[in-house]
């Protein structure tokens, strides 16, 4: 079977890979690019464990073909931290003990990032519904929701501080 050559951007880096036409983006990330943060929980787009951003849009990478991502931008959990500096969502998940086994965590972080980019000040109820496509079997969700709520506040404060600095010149 002939492979398909694909050029794309993953977490800001230009990446090229050759994949089979039937391979999913999840297969490509895990098996070709060594990015195993996204997990296969169901393989049918129902659990959210494989969530990544595709051109800023939240997708289940098990439902996207590798060949589809030519020329597009992919963000995964591995790209969330800025070097050693954790993203506020990651920090708050740590602080709030918003994880147990950790398999759903990457998907939740990516989905929460997508939510906060769309809505910087979500209510608790908006968070609950926005994350309802991500299954967690361990935590009972409450700590996750609170962590996302707290991170939203951090991000708003960061934004404000940035604006202030800009205004000050």
């Amino acid at each position: 079977m002939k492979g398909i050559a694909v050029s794309t951007t993953v977490n800001g880096d230009a990446v090229e890979f050759v994949c089979d036409a039937r391979e999913t983006l999840l297969d490509v990330l895990r098996n070709h690019l060594g990015l195993t943060g996204a997990k296969e929980g169901c393989g049918t787009g129902d659990c959210g464990a494989c969530s990544v951003l595709l051109d800023g849009q939240l997708v289940c990478s098990c439902l996207v073909l590798g060949a589809e991502v030519e020329g597009r931008e992919i963000e995964t959990v591995e790209g969330m931290a800025d070097g050693d500096r954790l993203h506020p969502l990651q920090k708050r998940f740590l602080e709030h003990a918003a994880l147990q086994c950790g398999v759903c965590t990457p998907g939740f972080l990516v989905a929460a990032k997508a939510l906060l980019e769309r809505n910087s000040n979500p209510s608790e109820s908006e968070i609950r519904y926005a994350l309802a496509g991500n299954l967690c079997r361990c935590t009972g969700y409450d700590k996750i929701v609170h962590a996302v709520h707290a991170a939203a506040g951090d991000l708003r404060r960061q934004q404000k501080a940035r604006k202030k600095r800009k205004a000050a010149g």
Binding site: L35, K39, L94, G102, P106
Partner: peptide, 23 residues
């Protein structure tokens, strides 16, 4: 003490190695 789960820093980075993630 309410210390975080020992793997929490790996979980949030997507770096915790589960059986299917082993090279």
């Amino acid at each position: 003490e309410a210390v975080p789960h020992d793997s929490a820093h790996l979980h949030v980075a997507g770096e915790a190695t589960y059986t299917d993630d082993i090279i």
